[in-house]
Design a protein around this nucleic acid. Structure first.
Lengths: 313, 313
DNA sequence: CATAATAGTGACAATTCTTGTCATAATTAA
DNA sequence: TTAATTATGACAAGAATTGTCACTATTATG
């Protein structure tokens, strides 16, 4: 094998393994240790961040940076990647150490000129908008780590006026409409809950024993067992416009069903404590929704409407 | 320069230029043509898809696939890129030839094992949600092309019940909350308008002469001149919750201002034709907003509230 | 402390690779 | 036809690569 080829393969091998020794590579490539040493030095000069330690259990390591081997991307693929990463700029908080802008710069810098030109032309003409929120969520990576490792956290959570401490076991985090949320099993309410991450004002590891919830994740969390609680039925008829607005809502319940013509209905049960939330939601739909059920919800809505009407008279 | 280094740089150079000749490279690298020829053959053996044609205006070309040269990404950067591209899967329509999933596969396949493991662990625990819409927007790439090239399109647009034909000159497209929108200068209303792309039922090139709107793009379109139309003032006091909801809204007007404590106010002017939209919006804010101005808006809101109250009595 | 496992250096000679040069084909657009 | 291209082969000078050997230095472990 020629030296050039060996160097390329060495680069890949070295990136694949986190740690390795000179002898190991020498055997693998069928050359002498001396040669590998020389090769490694050359790789270092070419920019691969190598670090070595002598002694038993010593050896070479590639530092935090990994060289991504040459990947064949088509122009379209490169454009997709660019805009996907570009879209992340709207987020004020991310669960990773916001390295996305440096990644984007590198990626952009290495693209062929003509693809770069195409991107430049498109940059101000395509956008993936996310509402820019001022609220930051400093605990995203802690929550995510806890979800991955299935640890229990003790959080201080600010709900409306009052703040409370609770132990939660995160299932995952997600962002919607500019806010970050954390799905978690809440030990206080003994069920799955969704917390808005910018309302979590502290998060520390808890000593509590974790439940085995490894099989539950963001895709299937709806099926997680929940404690019985006071629930009320909901049924609402929707116009086309009303149905479209509901489509954008994240809740698993009540469920939206749509007819051929675009209209539809919402049906399901909600927690009694969410009554006022849904009352306001349906009022916000205006003529787009006609709530038929339940009486409690209708009563809440009427009260709210009367109050508003009073306010503006 | 050693051969290995030259080969690496050659790979990058070759990917940057679309077309090149042997003599060109020989001059650039300061070696003989014979050497470059040998190098190119070696690059070919290493997987770079080279293609050559003899004769005048012949030369070498890199085929459709471009090799992205080895880029040093940190682990965090690679993770960011992965999740950014991963998030695109929520979109049913994209303005590029949806190559994002193949890009993702390649990218994933080439990552070092341990980063891949980390991603696997996080995959079901982080998500960037976008409401899944059923409506598709088949004209996205046509609209985008028109925006880039500043062409005029004749579209058939379905607004509420009636559909109409209009000539527009697209400024750009953007997605929010699961819908795609197109900002464009509308020749019929002689001003900037935003169209929902899934309501565009045809789009063909128009013979009309394009205006010079090259300086206008998504970031600054608000400043584009608009036709005089009947406007009404808006002023509303907002609680913290109300302000947060407003923050997520896309309109440039009325403007949101926030105080230290999180509360704030909305102030500005809106088109008279949007009155009922805003009336409903403010009603949806419930106690979160107290509208103070203008009388027309208040009247509209009162009427709407009364109607809703009547509906549920 | 001794030992073994590591990395790291230097020198040298044998070998292999690389490079430029020259000669020559083949192809093709203009 | 001509000029601009790629393409190939041969050869010799020179440069680079490689393995070997002999060292040194560092450090975890028993």
């Amino acid at each position: 094998m020629s030296k050039s080829k060996r160097l390329m393969e060495l680069m890949m091998t070295v990136n694949r393994k986190r740690k390795f020794t000179v002898g190991e590579l020498a055997r693998e490539f069928g050359v002498s240790q001396r040669t590998i040493l020389r090769d490694l030095q050359e790789l270092g000069e070419l920019g691969v961040p190598l670090y070595s330690e002598v002694g038993p259990h010593g050896g070479y390591q590639v530092l935090r940076e990994r060289l991504l081997p040459p990947i064949a991307f088509t122009e379209e693929e490169a454009v997709s990647i660019f805009f996907a990463v570009h879209a992340l700029r709207h987020y004020s908080s991310l669960p990773f150490e916001t390295e996305s802008s440096s990644a984007l710069k590198k990626f952009y810098a290495y693209l062929p000129e003509d693809v770069r030109e195409r991107i430049d032309q498109m940059k101000n003409r395509v956008d993936f908008v996310t509402p820019a929120r001022k609220a930051v969520s400093p605990y995203l990576s802690i929550l995510l780590d806890a979800a991955v490792q299935q640890n229990v956290l003790l959080i201080r959570y600010q709900a409306r006026e009052k703040s409370s401490d609770r132990e939660i076991q995160p299932i995952g985090i997600f962002t919607r409409n500019g806010h970050w949320y954390c799905s978690a099993y809440c030990y206080r309410s003994e069920g799955m809950r969704v917390f808005r991450c910018d309302r979590i004002h502290s998060a520390i590891p808890s000593a509590a024993e974790a439940l085995d919830l490894r099989h539950i994740h963001l895709e299937n969390k709806a099926s997680a067992g929940r404690k019985e609680r006071s629930e009320v039925r909901v049924f609402a008829e929707l116009t086309l416009e009303g149905a479209e607005t509901c489509e954008a809502e994240p809740w698993p319940e009540p469920k939206l069903t749509r007819r051929e013509d675009g209209t539809g209905w919402l049906q399901g049960t909600i927690a009694r404590e969410d009554l006022s939330y849904f009352a306001r939601f349906f009022i916000g739909l205006g003529g787009g929704a006609t709530v038929k059920d339940s009486p409690e919800l209708l009563a809440e809505m009427k009260a709210m409407l009367a109050e508003l009407l009073g306010k503006y008279s």
